Simulated assay, not measured.
Amino acid sequence: MSLYSDKESDAKPPVLANKVLSILLPNRLLESVLGDLEEEFNILAKQNIKRANQWYWQQTRETSMIYLKNKLASVEMLGRLNFYLPLIMFIMTAGLIVLLSILSDPTSISDTFWDELLQGKIHMALFSAHFWHNFWDILALAEWGMFIHFESFIISFFSIAMLIHLYKEQQASIIKLALCGYSLAFIPYIWGIMHIANYHFEANQIGPIVATGVLCLLYLLPPVSYIIHRKLKQLQAEHFEFHQ
């Protein structure tokens, strides 16, 4: 049976397209938008049902993208992303630090993990089924001493100070604050990998470089998430006052 009917009486907008719009559009606009689209669809369907369906899907995509961007940019959605993503990354990073501290046989992670460690790429463990299958067992071996590192603390302290300074600037947008904050969190680790790649280090010298980058990430994720949360609350309060 054809996906498209050539009979005018059978011409109806694609059900799936309407379902997409019903999910993304605000309830106050849904009925009027669907009504306008269906009216134009019926006019086109009298001439060519296939062209009418293609037009309807094109309008659905364009309309959906507008409201999808609005949803993703909303304070509520940004707040959820800013809470859950850093929390997940924090737990994963803690697992990597424990792994780096207790690992005696890199081949237990993968056959290539020793070579990846020599390149500073401890994050490659995240692609290992063995790491995830034993993740909670690895995390259970955590000790406070594994997470204390003076150099990482100093780097994190100055990074947080920079971010607080940016936060206190009224002109700093939430996007600018988030990009700056999470970049500061990841830069030490990325710099460590690049530093190892450009110089020839002994195996016992690579560990401290990688540890500094990973521990900076661990130290910075919670305060960066909190500062952005404060900024989002500020924006939410301003938005509420504007509509009062």
Rank of each mutant, 00 (worst) to 15 (best):
D6L: 10
K7T: 10
A11M: 09
K19C: 00
V20G: 01
S22Y: 08
N27M: 10
L29C: 01
L30K: 15
S32R: 14
S32W: 03
L37V: 03
E39L: 11
E40C: 03
W57A: 03
T60C: 13
T60G: 11
R61S: 12
I66D: 09
L68N: 02
L68V: 15
L72Q: 04
A73S: 14
S74W: 13
V75W: 05
L78D: 01
R80H: 13
N82T: 01
P86N: 01
L87W: 01
I91G: 07
T93N: 12
A94E: 02
A94Q: 08
L96F: 03
V98H: 06
I102Y: 05
T107R: 11
S110E: 02
D111Q: 10
F113S: 03
F113V: 07
F113G: 03
W114L: 11
D115N: 07
L117C: 04
Q119Y: 09
Q119C: 06
G120C: 07
A129I: 11
F131A: 04
W132N: 05
H133N: 14
H133S: 10
H133G: 15
N134G: 05
N134L: 05
F135W: 05
L139V: 11
G145P: 00
G145R: 14
I148N: 10
F150E: 12
E151I: 13
I154A: 15
I154S: 06
I155W: 05
S156E: 04
F157P: 04
M162H: 06
I164L: 15
Q171P: 01
L177M: 12
I187H: 02
I187T: 06
P188G: 06
I190P: 02
Q205R: 07
P208R: 01
A211W: 01
T212A: 03
T212Y: 01
G213I: 08
V214T: 11
V214K: 08
V214R: 07
L215I: 12
L218V: 03
L218W: 09
I227M: 09
H229K: 11
K231Q: 10
K233A: 12
Q236W: 08
Q236Y: 06
E241Y: 15
H243I: 13
